[in-house]
Design a protein around this nucleic acid. Sequence first.
DNA 1: CGTTCCCTTG
Length: 802
Amino acid sequence: MASTLIHCSLYNFYKNKNASPKQNKPPKTTQVKPKTTRKSPLIKRTQPNISLKPLVRPNGLEITRALCGFVESGSMDNALNLFEKMNHSDTFIWNVIIRGFTNNGLFQEAIDFYYRMEYEGIRSDNFTFPFVVKACGGLLSLIEGQKVHGKLIKIGLDLDVYVCNFLIDMYVKIGFIELAEKVFDDMPVRDLVSWNSMISGYQIVGEGMSSLMCFREMLELGNKADRFGMISAIGACSIERGLRSGMEIHCQVIRSELEVDIMVQTSLIDMYSKCGKVDYAERVFNRISSKNIVAWNAMIGGYSLNNYSFESFAFLKRMQEDDKVIPDVVTVINLLPSCSQSGALLEGKSIHGYAIRKMFLPYLVLETALVDMYGKCRELKLAVRVFDQMNEKNLVSWNNMVAAYVQNGQNGEALTLFQHILNEPSKPDAITIASVLPAFAELASRSEGKHIHAYIMKLGLGSNTFISNAVVYMYAKCGDLQTSRELFDGIMCKDLVSWNTIIMAYAIHGFGRTSIQLFSEMRKKGFKPNGSTFVSLLSACSISGLIDEGWGFFNSMKMEYGIDPGIEHFGCMLDLLGRAGNLAAAKLFIEEMPLVPTARIWGSLLAASRNNNDIVLAELGARHVLSLEHDNTGCYVLLSNMYADAGRWEDVDRIKYLMKEKGLVKTVGCSMVDINGRTERFINQDKSHAQTNMIYDVLDILLKKIGEEIYLHSLTKFRPLDVIKKRGNSPEHHSVKLAICFGLISTAIGNPVIVKKNTRICEDCHKAAKKISQVTKREILVGDAKVFHHFRDGCCSCGDYW
DNA sequence: CGTTCCCTTG
């Protein structure tokens, strides 16, 4: 009893915060007036009860009315005071109090009160239970719910239509749709609310199909849908992106003369925008006579979702100026995708600022949307800051953070965060996996890749095309092109991305001809290539040196397929020009490009200059890269290596100094090789391995055999060998060589040695690997950041250009 | 006695 009162005095506190403590509700705006603030005509809500102190006579009509007034106005402490003082042997009074608790979000109190009622021997009736059941739903407590449900069965109220409607609602809220279904199925009589509850129940848990089927069944049984049913069914169409069903229901709405209902109109706006029909949404919107913030938000969100960022901002302005409507949390949330899509960081930040000023934060959904926005606007630091400051996170928040890391090239961080998710109570879902797989592709060894693949199968996501595509790419990036191909062949519903992926898989392994074959196979199957298809195809041509084919495809993009080449395609063509050794043409190509060159474009010129030993052009490329990406470590390293090759040691030191000044640290080169299912990682000069001695002995023998003087030639041009060795980073013990040696001695003859490396393979390791493949008669694969080098009989698949 | 519109991720 005492605890109840304490809870009650807390009530006003919660109410002022406008959110119950456990649920993460959006902060309310001024627009919506909660039902509970309606004042009782009899008694002012804040005034303590004075007039009814000495209570001797049985409950009069006014006392009961007063009690109801308190309950209705949300003054539960006043109601309780009155309750304790009056004669409360009547079931009705108890029902009023329980209803009061439940409707004011005090679920535990409602349940406690029900048990007190039982304890005091007051008979409960069919009006008691609906609110007890609702309280169980509010608590999200299956145990409490089933306890009450059991009681209902015992006293034979479990088939009461009202009670059942509440039971359905409760099970849906707790997330057990099958239990709701069972209640519904067992009902001897159903009313419209029963149907509506089930239709909305399916919609709430995301089963749009079931929702629509239920809706249809209801109509077939001769029931007429009301606004509630319509709204839920329209929502189900949004989930399923079912435009046809949506339009069908729209017709029913018109026939039922419900099209003037603003909530129905709003859900139609939402449905049409989710189905990609913004113009239809606009038409519905324009017919609304007096628009509220929800309708405005739906329209702004619709524009945002369909990539009309300009229109969504224009509508924001119109909403404020024409309708004097003040943006709320949902407005803010709906605007954020517009910022991400157009890369409008400044707008994103000012929206964030607005949200702070309006005290919308902390709020889970908004924070999660901010993480996404900052991630996509390439402001990883701000994404991390928002994420770290969240006091509550859900799976979507985690997923967004993983994606933000991946989108900003922080694959290691993404994998670390993924490990954290595995320790969370919420299991990763398809989106987590889809987000993290690119990080695995970059950083994982083949056996680690197999591990995550097994986990995906365990989660039951094996037939998800989106994920399968990412797995296909991951195997290719882990050096296992065969498994990659087998998985591709096994995808039941291949989409365009599947084809783009397998074309790219063969491309990075240097099988450009196969990529081209796959492209024509894809077209035979009736797929229309998109921009990404051409990225795969042009990469294939440039990596395999298929110059003429490359130009042919590049020209066909616009002519045959009507695709305007994007910056990424110009990048591929630049690689192709570099590959052909035509640096002058490459430079001209950049100058005459119709698009503004990005860091990737200049990086391509830099790589071409490196491969053609043109320091002047390399410096030009590097200057541009660094003006766009001042922290591009790879750029510094590449330039420094070129100076070293040319013997320009002062320049090497100058770059080293520059990097130190900017606080840039060279990425630690790491090579990995799988031995008996275990991944062994090596860094340069690594001596930490248990079998270090053997590895170094074998390497020594091999180096002698292939002739040190050959592979060290370029370095000893300018410096004596002992000086290089003293510097501590002699290429003879680079990580790639250590990994290759360990692979050679630990795997059976006949099998290829597969090494994966996180940075570009160096000239010396490349030369050595060719020779080693020749003297050992073994096939060696080294995947670096860009391509796989297949070394066999002294040659490399990359044709010595990478 | 009850249910309803806009609110984040690949």
